[in-house]
């Protein structure tokens, strides 16, 4: 493996940011830690989402389904299997579901995919509720562990770092190159020998696995898991908004959206609980009409304009 000096610099900067973020629980154990766990959760979810939806432009609303399966994997077997194994199971189960959904819809146009994933969390919720009512006597599951908020925070941070490293590795791989070609022209992609459907399905499975792991990590936070909270469709929508708000062209783009929007949603749900839907609606509309390429897109545009003006000025001086 040969890294360019540019890549090494970015890697070091990323490591420094991650290390700095890791020290946060040392300063506060209360409100700030709790909101930081939320931010870290959405950071992991949004980057994992962007792994797939960034290059393909397919809008996935399956996040809640994968996340819920992750929490359920932990809830069901926490008394029987060691926790790390459960995280692995969560990844496997979510990836399998992603594979099935992908196989059914990713050969078709984007609309079918959105519609399918739109109802997916609700479908899984119905099935889980039904199975619980039929085969067990209780409606929920208790998850008792000795894990604290700090532990969860650190695990989510590690997960986010893992998503970044995976994203970087994919970009350097055949799969990443294939996605670039597909993003340019799917017809050409097929005719140079790319199995476009397979490439998309694989990527969706990787993304789904990470989201499932995020669910597994979050499970101890809830203590009591029941279908409506585990498969809360709001998670899917929030992830889409935050990722698009930040911008999905780069893997770090979503982070720009995650931090402010998690804080905004925290304030809104605490003070104006009846207005959450309206805020989400307005956020969607704002993204479509004002910042279609996300905040990072705006910054890049401004920079390109500035550079163009600089060169123009330079040329004028030369002339």
């Amino acid at each position: 493996m040969n890294l360019t000096s540019h890549e090494i610099r970015i890697g070091l900067a990323g490591a420094a940011v991650a290390a700095l973020a890791a020290t946060l629980p040392l300063f506060d154990q209360g409100y700030y830690l709790s909101i930081s766990v939320n931010i870290m959760l959405y950071a992991a979810l949004c980057t994992a989402w962007t792994l797939f939806s960034g290059p393909t432009h397919y809008i996935s609303l399956a996040t809640a389904a994968f996340f819920g399966l992750g929490t359920y994997s932990v809830g069901l077997w926490i008394n029987h299997l060691p926790y790390p194994v459960l995280v692995g199971i969560a990844a496997l189960v979510s990836a399998s579901l992603a594979g099935l959904v992908g196989a059914a819809t990713l050969r078709l146009s984007g609309v079918y995919f959105v519609i399918f994933t739109l109802g997916l969390a609700e479908l899984v919720r119905q099935l889980v509720t039904w199975a619980q009512a039929k085969f067990t006597t209780r409606m929920g599951l208790y998850v008792f562990t000795d894990m604290t908020e700090e532990h969860i925070y650190w695990m989510l941070l590690a997960l986010t770092v893992a998503v970044f490293i995976t994203g970087w590795a994919i970009n350097r791989s055949r799969l990443g190159f294939a996605m670039q070609v597909i993003g340019n022209d799917e017809t050409v992609a097929k005719h140079v020998g790319i199995d476009t459907a397979r490439a998309k399905i694989v990527l969706f499975m990787v993304s789904g696995a990470f989201i499932g792991i995020a669910g597994a990590i979050s499970a101890p936070r809830y203590a009591y898991i029941e279908p409506p909270s585990a498969f809360n469709p709001m998670i899917s929508f929030l992830v889409v908004i935050m990722a698009l708000l930040g911008g999905t062209k780069r893997l770090w783009g979503p982070l720009v959206g995650v931090v402010p929007f998690t804080i905004v949603m925290d304030i809104v749900s605490a003070r104006f609980p009846n207005h959450t839907s309206i805020v989400i609606g307005l956020a969607f509309l704002a993204i479509v009409y004002f910042i279609p390429n996300g905040v990072t897109g705006l910054i890049e545009q401004a920079r390109a304009k500035w550079q163009a003006r600089q060169t123009a000025v330079g040329e004028e001086k030369a002339a």
Partner: peptide
Amino acid sequence: GNVMAGAVFGH
């Protein structure tokens, strides 16, 4: 990159 696309995935 355009030409590599032909080399990487094809025959």
